[in-house]
């Protein structure tokens, strides 16, 4: 059985339209026009043990709402979630003992007390034995670089430091699965790198199952084997990162280095509209083409037959371009 099973999950919120102006808000006191918003609109997926799943989607697509249902915070309007045999909302207290959660925007630690005290309190809540606590603390202190932070109150930490401490807090009791909602939001490059390296390590070495939402595509590229894209409450893509790159309509790029000056006009003559060339430098050209129209071997063969090429590279479409296209065009892009 899969570790996480989600079946036709739905969450709807009742919202009301606010009228404008003071008179409007006065009117709202007495009569409100309600409408139902389906934040999550019938999603299904499974996650196996040891997977690192990236959960993507534009703002307001339903990512956070899904995570909140998966972690037992929100009660689903409809549908079924089973995680390790638990129903997150119904079995909240038993269930939350086995999961780790980090929200990038908000800390789970106690604001006023030192990090170490927070971790000790968590160990008590989650009934972690002293020896387990010691060995985990040692491991986390080392991998997350917490040595100098342990005696600082949480409120005095920088954002990057706080996220690292939050990660430690969510792992000190050895959860089987980790939910991360934008864990690197607002971090600088160094901070992002540290968190990323840490997640990769616990996924590989400790076989931790991780479900994370993020807007950082580099993060996804480095970490996730599988991605789920949600838009307007529905899953529009569920699969490997490799497959998403082969979406029709995405252009590939070829970089050509010539022994002499780059023959741009001649190339244009040969390929016409099939390849759009841009000059990168005196001897270097970049061309973008649709692989369905012109295959890469065909293109390379023709170039080599006509010119003296010193070197060439072909690059896959940038992930950012892929995701942007999906966000822009929704399910139609797929």
């Amino acid at each position: 059985m899969a570790l996480v099973e989600v079946q036709n999950l739905r969450k709807s919120f009742r919202t009301f339209k606010r009228s404008e102006g003071i008179l409007g808000s006065f009117k709202d006191l007495f009569s409100r026009q309600y409408s139902t918003l389906n934040a999550v609109d019938g999603i299904s997926f499974k996650v196996e043990e040891g997977e690192l799943l990236g959960y993507l989607g534009p703002n307001g697509a339903g990512k956070s709402t899904s995570i909140k249902m998966l972690t037992g915070i929100l009660k689903p309007t409809d549908g079924e979630i089973t995680v390790m045999g638990y129903h997150p909302f119904r079995d909240r207290r038993a269930y939350t003992a086995h999961i780790g959660v980090v929200f990038g925007q908000r800390t789970q630690l106690w604001w006023d007390i030192a990090v170490l005290e927070s971790l000790k309190l968590l160990a008590k809540i989650y009934r972690v034995s002293d020896s387990e606590f010691k060995s985990r603390l040692e491991l986390l202190t080392e991998t997350l670089g917490l040595k100098d932070l342990l005696h600082t109150p949480v409120r005095k930490l920088s954002l990057g430091q706080r996220i690292r401490c939050d990660l430690a807090g969510s792992l000190i009791y050895g959860p089987k699965i980790l939910f991360l909602d934008e864990p690197t939001i607002g971090l600088d490059a160094v901070g992002k790198d540290a968190v990323r390296a840490f997640l990769r390590k616990i996924n590989r070495d400790l076989k931790a199952t991780i479900i994370m939402t993020t807007h950082d595509l580099k993060e996804i590229e480095e970490l996730c084997q599988r991605i789920l894209i949600i838009d307007k409450g529905r899953i529009i893509y569920d699969g490997s990162l490799e497959r998403v790159r082969t979406l029709p309509g995405l252009k590939r790029r070829i970089y050509l280095d010539f022994a002499g000056s780059a023959p741009e006009s001649k190339l244009n003559e040969i390929f016409g509209t099939r390849v759009a060339f841009e000059r990168e430098s005196e001897r270097r050209l970049a061309g973008s083409y649709d692989p369905r129209e012109l295959s890469t071997p065909e293109l390379v063969k023709e170039v080599f037959a006509n010119f003296d090429v010193a070197d060439f590279t072909v690059s896959e479409p940038e992930l950012e371009e892929v995701i942007m296209k999906i966000y822009r065009e929704g399910a139609g892009a797929l």
């Binding site: 909140k68 972690t71 037992g72 915070i73 909240r92 207290r93 038993a94 269930y95 939350t96 003992a97 959660v101 929200f103 908000r106 789970q108 809540i125 989650y126």
Partner: peptide
């Protein structure tokens, strides 16, 4: 302020 999220994430009443 959404602090109740944190409360619900702990295995306590």
């Amino acid at each position: 302020q959404g602090q109740f999220d944190r409360v619900l994430l702990r295995p306590l009443n």
